[in-house]
């Protein structure tokens, strides 16, 4: 690891000021589970680090009439056990419960987790070609071991999978992130936060280098109760997804689906909303066939690599199972 300058400003204002005057290559450090890890691997080499991990302004979970407000500095573990979130936004709680280990959830912040980097093994090995890490060097995964790579949203330059779970559930619930920077505060719908690799795989999100996520807002929805996050992995716990799905449903007294939310994880280069799949469920009773069809629609545009085609069928079944579980919870 290369040396870096370290500061830990004591307020958000001080962070913003530090970001304003920051030298090139400055990075924001929160829980450390991504940035510090990648620094150890030589994948990240910031010249300076601004530590925000204990800013009191970034903590706190509150519930208003219209939304759930999560401080960006809240630790992941505090969400999965939260007495309101668990019943009202089950998929949110489950997405965190199935992410990483409790130790890492005690460290990682929500804001940092949204910007978690890919687990592509070629990206994480600084000796390998990687367009994301070293533009123009090529993508080692395309002709390599691409079992965990993205089926949706890849470009000819990069198929690295977005690895997070929490953002998938947030996306399903139309969450918004509030960010601050030297140009003031702005709000970004989660759906617009992450970008596909396209021609520039380095760019993973729309935040400027001098912007800081301060909070996440999740609109209240009845679909939160009828929701689930299903994650299929190579082991029962403590592994990244081969496929995952966040599903939230509202079903009326006549058994008709009136609200439908589906987002996919572990299969795309960014958190992936399956809008057409959602729509396919609306206005009709929830059946096994409808759940399966939603999965098929969600993966209609999937493009497999050399060794990961099975994850299309796995993804379809994951969506179908999650839809069925959400449906059972919605009518409970």
């Amino acid at each position: 690891m290369k040396p870096f300058a370290y500061t830990a400003p004591s307020s958000v204002d001080a962070v913003v000021e530090a970001l304003r005057v920051a030298q090139p290559g400055t990075k924001i450090l929160a829980g450390g589970t991504t940035l510090y890890d990648l620094m150890k691997l030589g994948v990240e080499a910031p010249s300076a680090v601004i530590d925000v991990h204990r800013l009191p302004e970034l903590t706190g979970i509150s519930v208003t009439d219209s939304e759930l407000v999560l401080g960006a500095g809240v630790r992941m573990a505090d969400v999965s056990d939260h007495p309101v979130i668990r019943p009202s936004y089950t998929a949110l709680a489950e997405s965190i419960w199935r992410a990483a280990s409790q130790q890492l959830r005690n460290m990682a912040t929500l804001g940092g987790n949204l910007l978690q980097r890919t687990r592509c093994g070629y990206f994480r090995d600084a000796d390998m070609p990687c367009n994301k890490r070293n533009p123009g060097s090529g993508c080692a995964a395309m002709e390599g071991v691409d079992r965990p790579h993205a089926l949706l949203g890849a470009s000819s330059l990069c198929s690295a999978t977005y690895a997070g779970d929490f953002a998938i559930a947030l996306l399903a619930f139309d969450a918004v992130v509030d960010v601050v920077g030297p140009r003031g505060e702005r709000s970004i719908p989660l759906a617009e936060l992450h970008v596909e690799p396209g021609e520039d795989p380095r760019r993973e999100h729309v935040l400027d280098v001098d912007e800081l996520i301060v909070r996440i807002r999740v609109p209240l929805t009845e679909a939160g109760r009828g929701s689930t996050y299903l994650k299929i992995r190579d082991r029962e716990s403590y592994a990244f997804a081969l496929a995952s799905a966040a599903v939230g449903l509202v079903i009326d007294g006549a058994g008709i689906v009136t609200e439908s939310r589906i987002a996919l994880g572990g299969v795309a280069t960014r958190p992936w909303r399956a809008v057409e799949a959602e729509q396919s469920l609306l206005g009709q009773p929830l059946t096994a066939a409808a759940a399966r069809r939603a999965g098929e629609i969600a993966f209609a545009a999937a493009r497999p690599g050399r060794t990961n085609e099975f994850r299309i069928e796995l993804g379809i079944r994951t969506v179908a199972d999650a839809v069925r579980t959400a449906g059972e919870r919605a009518v409970r």
């Binding site: 450390g32 890890d37 204990r54 280990s101 005690n106």
Partner: peptide, 18 residues
Amino acid sequence: TVHLDGRRVVSCLTPAVQ
């Protein structure tokens, strides 16, 4: 694994300055 203010964390990914 160690405890920081009573919570378990992995000390390998905890910068000591924190």
